[in-house]
């Protein structure tokens, strides 16, 4: 380690000790949200969940619907979403978030209801609930975070793991001959008459974050107007920890590998209602 680096490290440690990085004049961005608890998230550095939570909270606040929205958290990395989002929420059993959301929406139809689910939750164990919730056209938002891996349990193969992609349960890469091909469930639900708005977005670049935020907002507006069915927003995301990459590498890998397989854009818009 060279001398300059050591000095830098010392300087950095000193900064942290003095908590000088947290002073008002050092802040480059501040926007406290009522819909988000002021607490550290458990998500790994670079993970997309934090960004999606943030923009979801922003939309809720901007639409002024904190009192009127109820969310359902899945089993997976975002199982504790309710620790961050300061809105009424229910945890659900693995895969059953859209069934729980159905139950809530059916008895409180005047409220906004959403489920927040990962790929294992939504597209493996919860496939039946996902398909049938969309097929009934439940007037809810399904927010689907797809990072192609089981994050919480430590990097096992997901229904959306890419062909050849390594995971702890596909250590030699996903062999589609024996393990099946990745399930493009978003394309699948777009075919159902029950869905109103189906889109695939990402949060790996500022421009994409803005687009995803817009998509969530649109979905909630459609829900308010009862514009003909389930809104399904997929966010293609990353998993630096289980992909064994740095956050920057993971976003690059995602762009080069995930996005060609899961192309971004709207798959379905409400009939005649899209301006």
């Amino acid at each position: 380690m060279n001398e300059k680096r050591m000095l830098d490290d010392q300087h950095f440690e000193q900064m942290i000790e003095e908590e000088s990085i947290c002073t008002t004049d050092n802040k480059v961005y501040e926007a406290p949200l009522d819909a988000l608890y002021d607490t550290a998230m458990h998500y790994c550095p670079g993970c997309g969940h934090g960004v999606v939570h943030r923009i979801l909270a922003e939309v809720i606040e901007e639409m002024g619907i904190i009192k009127d929205i109820i969310g359902v958290a899945p089993v997976g990395c975002s199982v504790l979403a309710y620790n961050y989002l300061n809105i009424d929420m229910s945890e659900a059993a693995h895969g059953r978030a859209s069934a729980a959301a159905t139950g809530i929406k059916r008895v409180l139809p005047e409220k906004y209801v959403f489920s927040y689910q990962g790929d294992g939750d939504l597209a493996a164990i919860g496939t039946g609930e996902t398909i049938h919730t969309c097929n009934r056209g439940e007037n809810i938002l399904i927010l689907f975070i797809n990072n192609g891996i089981y994050g919480m349990t430590g990097g096992q193969m997901a229904p959306t793991t890419l062909p050849g992609m390594k995971s702890t349960t596909s250590p030699f890469g996903r062999d589609v001959e024996t393990m099946g091909a990745p399930l493009k469930i978003t394309d699948l639900v777009a075919q159902l008459p029950g869905t109103a708005y189906v889109t695939r977005q990402s949060v790996h670049k500022p421009g994409n974050v803005r687009k995803t935020k817009k998509a969530i907002q649109k979905a909630l507006e459609y829900q308010k107007n009862g514009d003909g069915g389930t809104c399904f927003v997929e966010v293609v995301s990353n998993c630096p920890s289980n992909w064994k990459m740095t956050p920057v590498q993971s976003n690059k890998w995602m762009e080069e590998n995930m996005l060609p397989f899961y192309p971004l854009g709207d798959l379905k818009k409400p009939n005649g209602k899209e301006k």
Binding site: A92, R96, A99, T102, G103, I104, V107, E129, I131, H132
Partner: peptide, 19 residues
């Protein structure tokens, strides 16, 4: 509501009972 399975039924009950 006729659910797609008993698994879905009980989880709809779970969701709705929470309200």
């Amino acid at each position: 509501l006729q659910a797609e399975s008993e698994v879905a039924s009980i989880n709809m009950v779970y969701g709705a009972a929470g309200t």
